[in-house]
Nucleic acid binder design. Structure first.
Lengths: 337, 337
DNA sequence: TTGTAAGCGTTATCAT
DNA sequence: ATGATAACGCTTACAA
């Protein structure tokens, strides 16, 4: 392993000069810099980042903490963050929390021990407030929260425009002629789901439809609970559902079909998250798309800029067959005639 | 930031003693160790890993290099690796190559500069051989390759049992009564696809069916090429296809339906990779499942054990509707009657 | 413009 | 069982 001292010795200068030359300091003669660079290349020198980091008291590693790395949403966020951070000379250290509070604390410790330059994180369900974050990170490590954020914590936040998105999705259902639109709303301890519910309500109000609490269904948003929610919605006389997740939208579709009703003719469905399967089903499922890659990019940019602002990443409604009464269904490709 | 010197001063001992006590050396009086541990806890001490790593010349970070982190397969591999590595006290540093050779070299440099304890990697399509890996990593950093491996490189390798898996998939099609079984084979510069093709051929031979090169279709394995392959297979009189990917299997299904044929009655399909959408389509698509999480686990275990063996992770055939003539189709949940 | 020297926080090798 | 000291490789005042 060749060090700056080796280069210095070979050139008859001191390590400090080599260090300056290599780090682009203006306090080096052009001639010397060239000689150093050439010798460094020749000897195959590569800066020891660990030593450099120790000395400088900071590193070029950025920590990313997510509930589960293999979840489509989070892996795309990481991809987006990495695309920015890598270009800026940072590397990405990843920890998963598996939605557990203890693991989140451990991950934060790992980040601190490794003296990361900053932390981008989305909280575990198991984390009830943000005090552990402050305790562990202190105020020397910049924090950026995305998606699941605690407003109480300092630093930048990157969130989706859940209110606006759910508003659009609901308005779209109204425009398609559905008149009794319920919602599978999710769980209200998440700010994101609460905002979606608000958007749904506002859209109904703005379009002269009554807001009926008996067709707001609070539950988890998995396929099974979606099926149950779908059945309840039918009993309550709904002709459409805005669903706060795609898997529960899938379940709701199954429920509607199980009663012999047609989608979208008799019943309209819009999901949320734009999971890749929504575009592959038959019928394809309309979905309110999050923009995880962009959220990752924005999180990284917020870290780089050092500003503590809140960035809102817009959601985009993907209109597909499950809510589209006006166009021809795209049934050719997979369903039996 | 409290250091071991602070603890030493507070206790009236030297930093060396504190270091020994904290790192579990036997050369410390039990009494002293207790005092040190208590004081450390009291003062909120946390070891500076960067300094420790510099001194020890190694780190507790393991690098993982993948083509694209947000691809389902790779993010699951990472998840599997992380589950083992975290438990063993390592953290995971991630780099993507986006399938480009230059990015792979850069990622390897990043790993080396950060003095990672080891590297787990799956090569970019753009990497033609493994010389750059040896050049960059040297022989001081242990290497584990998974999925896309170069046999020429030293170190452990973790691969899927592609031959056996494709053999099972093809045999399954035979057992369902299909008699002219073609294959969408993929591209042959990948050892994995070549092995799948071999398994397909062997299964036909072993079951007394002819191996007909005119129904082996070499192409990329995306939806569009799958559609084309499906049409060609129909023209060639096939009644089934083993597909080396799930997206091309989807395309093939669409092709078969476009000709008014029924699946699985008239035509059988098995895909590969067990992408999540295969279980959500109608009909559900049979698929030869890779086991990415297990591959990640095995890669991490191979790194920890330090042995250079090749681990073969078995694939598992998931029989679903698209190849199952014997059972009732599961059509209730989504398709129009 | 370059050299000198100190130090980042830890650990390892001595010696005591 | 503990202490003194040096060193890991780099950066940065400060001095020349």
């Amino acid at each position: 392993m060749v060090t700056i001292s080796d280069i210095a010795a070979a050139l008859g200068v001191t390590p400090s000069t080599v260090s300056r030359a290599l780090s682009g300091s203006p306090r080096v003669k052009e001639e010397t810099r060239l000689a150093v660079e050439q010798m460094a290349a020749e000897m195959g020198y590569e800066r020891n980042i660990v030593a450099s980091n120790l000395r400088k008291g900071k590193s070029d590693i950025v920590g990313v903490i997510v509930p589960r790395i293999h979840r489509e949403f989070f892996s795309n966020v990481i991809g987006g963050a990495e695309s920015i951070l890598n270009a800026a000379g940072y590397s990405v250290l990843i920890c998963q929390t598996h939605e557990e509070f203890d693991a989140e604390v451990k991950a934060l410790r790992t980040m601190r021990n490794n003296q990361v330059a900053g932390v981008l994180m989305s909280h575990a369900i198991g984390a009830m407030d943000g005090t552990h974050v402050l305790d562990t990170l202190g105020d020397s490590i910049p924090l950026v929260q995305f998606d699941r954020v605690f407003s109480s914590l300092p630093g930048a936040k990157v969130v989706s425009n859940n209110f606006q998105g759910a508003y659009e999705a609901t308005k779209h259902l109204v425009s398609q002629g559905y008149r009794r639109i319920g919602t599978l709303a999710g769980y209200m301890n998440s700010e994101a789901y609460a905002a979606r519910l608000d958007g749904y309500r506002k859209a109904l109000e703005d379009n002269g439809l009554p807001v009926d609490e008996t067709i707001v269904f609070y539950d988890t948003i998995v396929r099974e609970t979606g099926f149950e929610g779908g059945l309840k919605a039918l009993e309550a006389g709904c002709d459409a559902l805005y669903c706060a997740g795609d898997f529960c939208a899938l379940g709701a579709i199954e429920a509607v079909r199980s009663k012999g009703l047609r989608i979208p003719e008799d019943f309209g469905i819009v999901g949320t998250a734009n999971e890749s399967f929504t575009a592959l089903m038959t019928p394809t499922i309309s979905s309110l798309a999050l923009n995880p890659f962009e959220m990752g990019r924005q999180s990284a940019l917020a870290f780089l800029s050092g500003e503590g602002e809140t960035v809102v990443v817009p959601m985009e409604l993907k209109v597909r067959d499950s809510s589209n009464r006006n166009r021809q269904l795209n049934l050719t490709h997979i369903c039996p005639k």
